[in-house]
Each structure stands twice: as structure tokens, then as C-alpha cells.
């Protein structure tokens, strides 16, 4: 297929065919990882800027490594101030970055909507690396990739997503991606952490993890943040862990071959017990590795690359 997209803002408007194509491209790139030289020249001469307005080590590192393995030049630009603090406005910062003649901007911001906004005012390709509570499309894609790799398919699987759905961009991107690829998604959280009318997204909502987890193929745990407790969204971490934390006992209710996922960083002993996190069913570290392949594919495809081209690199190297 021809991939014509210039920006990746979210999975909401990406078609199942495009997702399939990104996942296939990611598979091709992943084969490079086992080689001694883990680098291809596909984006040589291109410049990728990681523009991070919110602290992030893992996502930034993953994008940086992905760009470097494609031979692009990478600049990391972290902005700790926001426009409410006195200083440069978002537009000015972004235009300054673009004036450095970059081709692609990977952006992370605590405010929903910033990547879409910048895609309208800048000429570069914009890749959303997480915006507020909106979307985190590359996380969604790497999760789809991991599920497909482990389960051989996505369609028809029962995927249970547990935790702070209301504030989670990871949950939103996963809901779009999983439902588009035909999975049955069940969201589990206390009613206070389920956002209004989310059932309209073709998913099921359940407040009882013990019920929802039965026969699950994938159990996806989200990070819970303590500050939510101060807003009375749940009474205490202790109660949260008892009701919504994943331990071995609850995991037994899922299918025996169910996989456990988490976007990281984990709160061990809160939303996930150490035993589950380190169990054979956990694919949490593989998600991290797959993240690089998926981000390579996204950078590559948005830059206009084709799958045939990767095949030719593979031939040259073999």
C-alpha cells in the first residue's frame, strides 16, 4: 500500500490498513535488531527533533534510538517551561525549532491538542509522542505489535485494560487501535476513573476486575497516580490495589496463556504485583524493545519510505 500520511497525531483517524502496514513495516525493522550492525541508512541526511515539553526518558530514548538506527540526525530539545510560566510561547518555540531546518518533529506535551495545533502551523512532519490525556499513538502501535507478535492475531482477542482510563492517553490510543483491529476491549476501573460516554467507542466497561478478567487474552495494566486520590477519585492506594491491582490470584482467572502488559513506569505492589510483573506471562520489557521497531517504522513511513526499500537493505546485508 501507499502510505501518504504526513503526521501521526493519533490512532483515532488511522485506518486498519494503515495500522497493518505500520505493523508489517515494524516487523521488517525488528529483524535488524539481531544483527551486529543495527543501523540502516534510510533516513541519512534527515533531521529529527525530539521536542519534549514534559519530562520523559523512556519515550524520548526510544525515539532517539529509532531515529539513529535509521541514520537520521537527532536533536533532543527539552522545554521545562510552559506558556503559563513567563517565557516563550509554544508557537515561538516550535517555529524556532523548525527554523533549524528539521524534517520531523516528535512532540510530547502535557496539554492535549498541541501536536494537532502544531501540525497546522508548521511545515515539518509531526509525530505525537503523547499529548496530555489525549493520545500516545506510538505506544498504541507498539502494544498492537506486541500483541500480534505474541498471539499471532489481534482480531477476536479479549483485551482487558485496567486502571486510570480517564487520564490516560495510552488507554485512548489502545482503544482506537484495538477496536479497529477487531479486538474485544473491556475497560476496568472505578466509575470515577471512567470518562463520560466512553462506551460509545465500541468497548465494554466493567467495575469489577475479577469478573472482567475471566478468559482474557491480554491484561493491560495502567499506571495509577497518587495525586488522583487527592481529588477523591479513589479512597486510598491500599483499596485501589485490593480492587484493581493485578496479582497472581486474579491473573489465574484469565486464560492460562494470557499476556500481561504495562506501558511503564510500573508502580510495583500497587497496580501490579512484583510476581506478576516478573512472571512468564509478562511481556513488559518486550514492549520496550518493540517500541524502537515501531517508532522506526513510523519515522520511516512518514518520511515517505517504502517496504521494498527495507527489503533491499535486508538483501544487501545478507
Amino acid at each position: 500500500m501507499i502510505f501518504k500520511r504526513k503526521h501521526l497525531i493519533g490512532l483515532e483517524d488511522v485506518t486498519p490498513d494503515e495500522i497493518e502496514h505500520i505493523l508489517n513495516t515494524s516487523s521488517s525493522f525488528k529483524t535488524i535488531f539481531t544483527r551486529a550492525v543495527k543501523k540502516v541508512p534510510t533516513l541519512r541526511g534527515r533531521t529529527v527533533v525530539n521536542l519534549f515539553f514534559e519530562a520523559s526518558t523512556r519515550t524520548r530514548t526510544s525515539f532517539e534510538l529509532a531515529a539513529k538506527r535509521l541514520s537520521a540526525d537527532v536533536i533532543n530539545f527539552s522545554v521545562s517551561t510552559s506558556s503559563v510560566v513567563k517565557g516563550e510561547t509554544l508557537i515561538d518555540t516550535a517555529k524556532t525549532i523548525e527554523a533549524l531546518e528539521c524534517d520531523m518533529i516528535v512532540i510530547r506535551h502535557s496539554c492535549s491538542g498541541v501536536p494537532l495545533f502544531l501540525s497546522k502551523v508548521l511545515k515539518s512532519s509531526i509525530i505525537n509522542a503523547g499529548d496530555g490525556m489525549h493520545e500516545h499513538p506510538t505506544q498504541g502501535l507498539l502494544d498492537l505489535f506486541t500483541i500480534r507478535e505474541k498471539k499471532g492475531r489481534i482480531a477476536g482477542l479479549k483485551v482487558v485494560i485496567v486502571g486510570d482510563i480517564a487520564h490516560s492517553r495510552v488507554a485512548r490510543s489502545n482503544i482506537y487501535g484495538l477496536t479497529k483491529m477487531g479486538a474485544n476491549v473491556v475497560l476496568v476501573a472505578p466509575p470515577t476513573l471512567i470518562p463520560k460516554e466512553i462506551e460509545r467507542l465500541n468497548i465494554e466497561v466493567c467495575n469489577d476486575l475479577n469478573k472482567a478478567i475471566v478468559d482474557a487474552d491480554v491484561v493491560y495494566m495502567l499506571r495509577i497516580q497518587l495525586e488522583r486520590q487527592k481529588r477523591n477519585l479513589f479512597p486510598s492506594l491500599r483499596e485501589y490495589t485490593i480492587l484493581y491491582g493485578l496479582d497472581e490470584e486474579k491473573l489465574k482467572l484469565a486464560k492460562p496463556d494470557a499476556i500481561v502488559m504495562h506501558p511503564g513506569p510500573m508502580n510495583r505492589g500497587i497496580e501490579i504485583s512484583p510476581e506478576v510483573a516478573d512472571s512468564k506471562q509478562s511481556v513488559i520489557t518486550e514492549q520496550v524493545t518493540n517500541g524502537i521497531a515501531v517508532r522506526m517504522a513510523v519515522l520511516y513511513l512518514l518520511a515517505g519510505g517504502s517496504v521494498d526499500e527495507i527489503a533491499s537493505y535486508k538483501r544487501q546485508s545478507s
Binding site: 496530555g132 489525549h134 466512553i198 460509545r200
Partner: peptide, 19 residues
């Protein structure tokens, strides 16, 4: 309405904006 920026409902859920 602390930190709210739009109506709370389906659209605030989709947009990830506080309702």
C-alpha cells in the same frame, strides 16, 4: 470545574480535555 476547559461529555473524553 477545577482545571475544566470544555463541556464534560463524549467530546471531552475523546479530546482528553478536562470537563
Amino acid at each position: 470545574t477545577i482545571d475544566g476547559v470544555m463541556n464534560e461529555g463524549f467530546n471531552s473524553t475523546l479530546l482528553g480535555l478536562r470537563g
